[in-house]
């Protein structure tokens, strides 16, 4: 039986008790799943992440991470933000090692731990460079490495490739899938891009207008391993059109 790693049970949330964003929402995400969250701006996607990371506290309900209900959820999941949010004054090595330092590991030991991973992340030779010297794709790889090094089995990726150019974005998507398979993590990935969602995920959560009571859930009809060419299959194209149609219903211009 699949093990749930992240569960929302009857969770409600509103900012300042006014505009309700989530309304008695239930979600279950299983171990090693790749889930994308898609929806219009302001539909509550980022709020979902803020709740999971503990930056916001639900007004009702329970959020379980690996079956546990933590009073303080800080440090329980890995988070990769939309902008890379690397510290400009830290080198690539020191940025990646940050979560290890925060967990009490000495700087020297943390660096020993990071060094072999830099190679796997295509960052050899840039470990002593500062973020300002890196390309967009490289910065995102450092940011992803940093979230991996939190040690959590659940990773939240908030539109991580939205600022990249189209070609870099495609390579980063392929690279991310490789890493996901290799590292055996569960990933929740916010995106606006239906193609990206189709290519990456097992299931897609569609956020309609807030308050969200029930998430519309779509199982992606593609096997693994998959390639970008699979997205051009006529059946998939038709399926994609239907999905886009559904998304458009939730958008008011």
């Amino acid at each position: 039986m699949r093990k749930p790693v992240l569960e929302f049970r009857n969770v409600s949330f509103s900012y300042g008790g006014e505009k309700s964003i989530l309304d008695h929402l239930d979600i279950t995400i299983y171990d090693r799943e790749f889930i994308t969250v898609i929806g219009a701006s302001g539909s509550g996607k980022s709020t979902l992440f803020r709740l999971i990371t503990g930056l916001e506290i639900q007004s009702e309900g329970t959020i379980l991470i690996n079956g546990e209900n933590h009073r303080n959820r800080h440090g329980k999941v890995g988070y990769m933000p939309q902008q890379d949010l690397l510290m400009p004054w830290r080198t690539v090595m020191d940025n990646a090692a940050l979560p290890l330092e925060l967990s009490g590991i000495s700087k020297k030991d943390a660096q020993k731990h990071v060094l072999p991973l830099l190679d796997e992340f295509g960052l050899t030779g840039v470990e002593n460079k500062f973020p300002g010297e890196l390309s967009g794709g490289m910065k995102q790889r450092v940011s992803f490495l940093r979230s991996i090094l939190t040690g959590s089995n659940v990773l939240l990726l908030d539109e991580p490739f939205s600022a990249l150019d189209a070609i870099t974005r495609l390579s980063m998507q392929e690279w991310l899938l490789e890493q996901w398979e290799k590292r055996e993590k569960t990933i929740l990935f916010i995106t606006h891009d239906v193609n990206e969602a189709l290519f990456l995920s097992d299931r897609i959560f569609v956020f309609q207008e807030a308050p969200v009571h029930k998430l519309q859930e779509v199982v992606v009809p593609l096997g693994r391993p998959r390639s970008l060419r699979d997205l051009n299959d006529p059946a998939i194209l038709k399926w994609k059109d239907e999905l886009i149609e559904q998304l458009r219903k939730g958008v008011s211009i």
Partner: peptide
């Protein structure tokens, strides 16, 4: 944003101040 990122990594007040 960086402050929030550090919080999600479990940083306390002291770490946020120094780092």
């Amino acid at each position: 944003e960086l402050r929030e990122l550090l919080l999600t990594m479990g940083a306390g007040k002291k770490e946020i101040f120094f780092k």
